[in-house]
């Protein structure tokens, strides 16, 4: 009976496990292997691939690659600024949403729209809005007497491009967070707010001392998942800048974009392994961030 049960369970799991074995577990393991291949040509020998041995030099090659450092810098700046900012903004919005008596559903629906739209289509719309001469952003800036800025055009500075990318990224990522935080807030017992009012807490104190701590498990979860999301930024860059990956070629390249760039050059000896090495590095960076966030938060989440 026991073994029969076991067998049946594995039967139910088989379709999923089979697919995952082929398309998740094997590729994860194989990415490590590829990153140590020497002179790898993946499609040679009728798709069997060819190598001349194993080496650790692929990592050395990408560490000497200017573009790789550029992609690290872009990815880190984007993730470390846009994730905390979008979390803070969405928290404030959720708290504001909670406090209003009417139109809650309307605002929630509007705020959720970015989640269900095509990132590349909207990215292109942002690109038009960021246009130096006939874009909306510079028009708004001109209302405040600020001179036109080249955000994403050929003369755009790195900071202008990064700013544009961040604005778009935050705009895109608010939807999910607002929705999740709003339902998280609903689960907090109203009595804590009544008690805090009785205890003379100001709105800001309530936010800082009651709402945020009580929501901290959710905030941790959201910050880890959005950090992972931000570290894989790619579609947003394509949407905003196209295949050039920047106002100047590759100026906004991200780690994932770097991986894809070297992957697409698979006919050059060893390039596929460079892509794999970069992917492995991304894997460890992601892991590191998740661990750090969990450890740091463990100390601050006491409940």
């Amino acid at each position: 009976m026991e073994t029969k049960n076991n067998l049946r369970a594995w039967l139910y799991l088989a379709p999923m496990l089979l697919l995952m074995a082929v398309f998740t577990f094997y590729p994860l393991f194989n990415a490590f292997v590829i990153s140590f291949y020497k002179d790898y040509l993946p499609l040679a020998n009728d798709g069997a691939g060819s190598i001349t041995g194993y080496t650790i030099a692929n990592y050395g090659v990408i560490f000497k690659n200017q573009l790789f450092w550029q992609s690290l810098k872009n990815t880190f700046v984007l993730a470390l600024v846009s994730v905390p900012l979008s979390i803070i903004i969405s928290l404030l919005i959720s708290v504001a949403l909670k406090s209003i008596p009417k139109l809650k559903g309307f605002f929630q629906t509007v705020f959720f729209l970015p989640y269900v739209t095509n990132g590349i289509a909207v990215g292109m719309a942002f690109a038009v809005m960021f246009h130096r001469d006939y874009g909306l952003f510079n028009l708004v800036l001109s209302w405040f007497g600020i001179t036109a800025l080249d955000w994403i055009g050929g003369t755009a500075s790195w900071w202008a491009q990064m700013g544009a990318l961040m604005i778009f990224t935050i705009w895109e990522s608010l939807a999910f967070k607002i929705l999740v935080f709003t339902s998280g807030l609903q689960n907090i017992d109203k009595q804590y707010y009544d008690a805090a009012k009785i205890d003379h807490a100001t709105k800001w104190t309530i936010f800082k001392r009651i709402t945020v701590p009580l929501l901290s498990p959710l905030i941790l979860y959201i910050s880890i998942t959005s950090m992972i999301g931000a570290l894989k930024a790619y579609n947003s860059v394509i949407g905003l800048f196209g295949e050039r990956l920047g106002a100047q070629p590759y100026s906004m390249i991200t780690i994932v974009a770097f991986v894809y760039k070297y992957r697409s050059d698979f006919s050059f000896q060893g390039f596929y392994s460079y892509a794999a090495s970069a992917a492995i590095i991304l894997f460890f960076i992601t892991l590191l961030f998740s661990v750090i966030q969990t450890v740091v938060s463990k100390k601050r989440i006491h409940y």
């Binding site: 998740t24 590729p27 194989n30 798709g47 991986v259 991304l282 894997f283």
Partner: peptide, 27 residues
Amino acid sequence: VVFGIIIATMMIPGEIFILTNFLTVNR
């Protein structure tokens, strides 16, 4: 154990899988 392992894959950036999956599709 199986469930834990499967859940853990959610933390891995899917871009890592693409490299090999492309080769698999080719093969």
